[in-house]
Computed example of a mutant assay.
Amino acid sequence: MTAFELAVQDAAGVAIAGRVRPDRIELAAALSTGGLTPSPGLIEAAVAAGVPVHVLVRPRAGGFAYDDADAAVILADVRAALAAGAAGVVVGGTVGDSVDLDLTRAVVDAAAGAEVTFHRAFDTLRDRRRAIDALAEAGVTRILTSGGASCAADAAAELRALATHAAGRIQLMAGGGVDPSNAAVVAATGVDAVHASAKAVVTERLAVSLGSGAAAGAAGYETTDEQTATLLRDILRGDAR
């Protein structure tokens, strides 16, 4: 059986995860940007849902090269998430086109035995096999990757090769564009887990402009779709009819 990690970003998604019971929740805000660190209140609600919660710790949108001020925020958020009851954290930092090992080791130390996932910053790296070696040595629990493609299903051969290279030293979790139409294909690559957000769009109208990304008029936001999340769970557990 391939483990299922459901990415959620709001209270509605947390409630759905509590009913669907994936193996893990990845909790984030603003998934349309790749995800940002969620609020303390949302972390508290997710922990109360009774599914292991892994909190994305990403202090800003954009790339993954962090200065000392960013790193300090990341480490503070890691400690706060774990103190709030999270089972693990999800982070990623780069230096040039390689892993930021100083930040990664500092996060592993701050996690104090809790699980650490290195997120899709991995897909920006020049040498993914060398990165697997470095992250395993640093004590990271798992890597989230699309195999370097925008959609994991388009990189099945690379995912299979990466899973072989990991060889049980570190878990490999595939994510990026995973939906019920391709989840079985992605799982068949031999990865340890599959990550998906099962998103649907809710449409609204804004009376006034709220910012450069929220103009007045027709607007929408993404949230979790329970039917899609349930179908993904069943596919990955071999229960789909």
Rank of each mutant, 00 (worst) to 15 (best):
M1W: 13
T2D: 04
L6S: 03
Q9N: 14
R19Y: 12
R19P: 05
P22K: 01
R24K: 13
I25H: 08
I25Y: 08
L27M: 04
L27N: 01
L27W: 02
A29E: 03
L31I: 12
T33L: 15
T33M: 12
G34A: 13
L36I: 05
T37K: 00
P40I: 06
G41P: 07
G41W: 11
A45K: 12
V47M: 04
G50N: 00
V51F: 11
V53F: 10
H54S: 03
V55Q: 10
L56H: 03
A61S: 15
A61L: 13
G63R: 14
G63T: 05
G63L: 08
D68F: 11
I74S: 00
L75Y: 06
D77V: 01
V78R: 06
R79F: 11
A80L: 05
A81N: 09
A81W: 01
A83L: 11
A84S: 04
A86I: 06
G88D: 01
V89R: 08
G92L: 02
T94C: 10
T94D: 01
V95E: 01
G96V: 02
D97P: 03
S98F: 14
V99H: 02
L101S: 06
L101I: 03
L101K: 08
T104K: 07
R105S: 06
A106T: 00
A106N: 05
A110H: 05
G113L: 02
V116L: 06
F118R: 00
H119C: 02
R120N: 07
F122I: 04
T124W: 10
L125A: 02
R126N: 11
D127C: 05
R128S: 09
R129A: 12
A131P: 09
I132T: 07
D133I: 00
A134D: 11
A134E: 07
A136M: 10
A138T: 00
V140F: 00
R142S: 05
R142Q: 01
G148F: 09
G148V: 02
G148I: 08
S150R: 14
C151Y: 14
A152F: 10
A152Q: 01
A152D: 00
A157W: 13
A157H: 14
A157C: 08
E158L: 04
L159K: 03
R160C: 12
A166N: 07
A166T: 03
A166S: 04
A167P: 01
G168I: 13
G168N: 09
I170G: 06
G175N: 06
G176C: 09
G177E: 04
P180I: 00
P180C: 10
N182S: 09
A183D: 00
A184L: 14
V186H: 09
V186E: 07
A187F: 00
A188F: 01
T189W: 05
G190Y: 09
V191L: 05
D192P: 01
H195R: 09
A196T: 01
S197K: 00
K199V: 13
V202L: 01
R205Y: 15
A207P: 10
A215Q: 15
A216P: 02
G217F: 07
E222W: 14
T224I: 04
D225K: 07
E226N: 03
L231M: 13
D234L: 03
R237S: 02
G238N: 09
A240R: 12
A240E: 11
R241D: 12
